[in-house]
Write a protein that binds this DNA or RNA. Structure first.
Length: 271
DNA sequence: ACTCGTGTTAGCTG
DNA sequence: TCAGCTAACACGAG
């Protein structure tokens, strides 16, 4: 379920509990999660080392080591980080090791685990962080405007492009666009400057709210993403469609697509 | 019972 | 050349 706030909690867990401990063994036998590494390759690089830092940009995490190799971790759609049995942000620990896809065992007997039912998470050596845009929670308003506010692609596609802005997933995108009252289908370059600014502030607010309330799924409009759902603000029917290949929900009244989307005051859709 | 999906990306297609 | 689509992953939710 992780989007950026959940990933940050996982990173903080690693930072708080896994740094400085000598690595005794690594189970990298899941060749899908550890692709493209053959079994043993990550283990050879990490065994004997210690993790020295836990970093994050967007939804990608990486751990530096005192031996040089960097361990990249991604939670995918359903992954969690477990350290010594403690799960980031989830009081209910899942017992057993059925879904442990990647394990770092420390000399002291503890372990850092990527637990992931769907196997969409990744553990790799030396991830290419440079391909990611600035972190969504740290990007400045100016940089956001410069990176997001142009191009022919639908706005939602633009903000979910991890090379443009790192950390915005499907739910967070719907929430931020709804808060800003902008159509997800509006071409990114068609937005007025005030509309881009509004989206920036909505995204920051959605991130802060998710952080405070325990996840992106607590967003105001998320509960309305269902058949028969209505806009929590105006009561108009929510509309569903596919944008950039992802299920998308938006308010049929406040987020209607129109010429020069976002250039006018919201709430008076022309269609 | 059956469809869909909070993510990413290689591989195709037009 | 490239934007856009699909499959792959494996399980839970509706």
């Amino acid at each position: 379920m992780p989007e950026l706030p959940e990933v940050e909690r996982a990173r903080a867990l690693i930072e708080a509990r896994a740094l400085g401990r000598r690595i005794a063994a690594v189970d990298d036998s899941d060749t899908y999660v550890c692709r493209p590494h053959p079994p043993g390759e990550i283990a050879s690089a990490l065994t004997g080392a210690r993790l020295t830092a836990a970093r994050r940009r967007g939804k990608t995490m990486w751990c530096e080591t005192d031996r040089g190799p960097v361990l990249g971790l991604h939670l995918g759609m359903a992954g969690k980080i477990v350290v010594d049995g403690a799960e980031a942000g989830d009081p209910k620990e899942v017992l057993g090791t059925t879904w442990d896809r990647f394990t770092v065992e420390f000399e002291d007997g503890g372990r850092l685990v990527l637990r992931d039912k769907r196997r969409l998470g990744r553990a790799v050596l030396d991830p290419v962080i440079e391909r990611l845009g600035p972190d969504a929670a740290e990007v400045s308003a100016r940089e956001f405007r410069e990176r997001v506010g142009h191009g022919a692609a639908p706005l939602k596609v633009r903000i979910m492009d991890q090379a443009v802005i790192a950390g915005v997933g499907n739910l967070l995108a719907d929430e931020a666009l709804w808060q800003a009252r902008i159509s997800p289908q509006a071409p990114a370059g068609s937005l007025s400057r005030p509309a881009v600014s509004r989206l920036y502030h909505s995204l920051q607010a959605a991130l802060a709210s998710a952080e405070a309330n325990g996840g992106v799924h607590t967003g105001e409009v998320i509960a309305a993403r269902r058949r028969g759902g209505v806009c929590p603000r105006c009561g108009a029917p929510m509309r569903q469609g596919v944008v950039g290949g992802r299920t998308t929900w938006w308010c049929s009244r406040e987020q209607a697509l129109r010429r020069a989307a976002g250039a006018r005051a919201p709430g008076r859709a022309t269609v």
